[in-house]
Nucleic acid binder design. Structure first.
Lengths: 187, 187
DNA sequence: GTCTATATAATGATAGAC
DNA sequence: GTCTATCATTATATAGAC
């Protein structure tokens, strides 16, 4: 069913938002239920494994979204410079749609890290590799390409975090513009 | 008493570490008690306000530490380039001593943000100003100096965050070295 | 200052009706 | 699929002895 799949997506989005904003421990079943309009018991119908299952599912969702919205651009047929611009836009789009948060980063903290830290680290390593490959295609040597990849992702995540410190989402957007301009200038 | 002040500091450090690693909601009184070897009741002797008071106190502690270890260097008599290098070292030192976390950033998330978000935002703005002043002293125009300040702090916080994603504290240290070299090269 | 014991509330989770 | 009602556990917090 198209309708039920859309409803499921909507449910996931509502629940994932709570995890993003409150963190894994901060997201209580009462809040999760309220965010969806469902009862706690209904949530257990959809996720028999409770909070742990939800977090695992939404982490996969988030990884898929980032992959499709951002990192997939690094494997297109566009020129490397264009790919990098599209990647940055896609990453910024994910963050904007996630209210200035990244669920992958959220679940790398606290007790959730014990469950998901290894998966996250491996995924992040893969993404770093994709990004480094583009910097190589741009003419950098492997070592330097790796550093550029690490610094670009650190800048993106850092802008996200510092925007929250400032409680100013424009801070993130302005920083992203600068990152794009910086890359454009050198390419 | 010197001894009691040292004990108090030690107690604060033990407790603050739990908040940094587990987050505000994730830090339970059982964990806090276990980390100190004290009973829960004893913790309420030291902090009658419970977790809320602890978080408030440790946030002030963290701000003071960052101020003294990192940002104070920006107000010394050294040349701007030296001040910036010392600032970065000081910031990295705080993060290293805090096990790859920054309590200020931790308390800007989840329900703790409701209590401390305004204070954190103001403090962060002040720090941005201190940093921008040094980039001005380095010869940049005000607007550009502000951007450089924002990007430097974003890079530092981003390296901290991505190091956790990778579960690799060396990732942070390597990135900090690059930041220092980048500043040195242009100065 | 520290403890044991306990009160009280919230949390994650389940049973079973509809 | 959704609900109300409930359970068991854990959480924050307090009382009062030492």
């Amino acid at each position: 069913m198209v309708a039920s799949s859309a409803n499921r997506q909507h449910l996931h989005q509502q629940l994932a938002a709570v995890f993003r904003e409150r963190g894994y421990e901060g997201a209580t079943l009462a809040q999760l239920a309220q965010a969806t309009g469902l009862s706690k018991a209904s949530l257990y119908h959809h996720f028999p494994g409770g909070k742990a299952e939800m977090a695992a599912v939404f982490l996969r969702d988030a990884v898929t979204q980032l992959q499709q919205q951002a990192f997939a651009h690094l494997q297109s047929k566009q020129p490397p410079a264009v790919q990098l611009q599209q990647f940055i836009d896609g990453f910024a789009g994910y963050v904007a749609a996630s209210n200035g948060h990244c669920l992958v980063a959220v679940l790398a903290q606290g007790s959730a890290a014990e469950d998901h830290g290894a998966v996250i680290a491996q995924q992040y390593r893969d993404w770093l590799g994709l990004l480094a490959a583009q910097f190589e295609a741009l003419g950098h040597k492997p070592k330097r390409a790796q550093r550029r990849a690490a610094d670009l992702l650190a800048s993106l995540y850092g802008l996200m975090l510092t925007a929250r410190l400032l409680n100013d989402e424009e801070h993130f957007k302005r920083g992203v513009k600068r990152l794009k301009r910086g890359l454009h200038a050198e390419a």
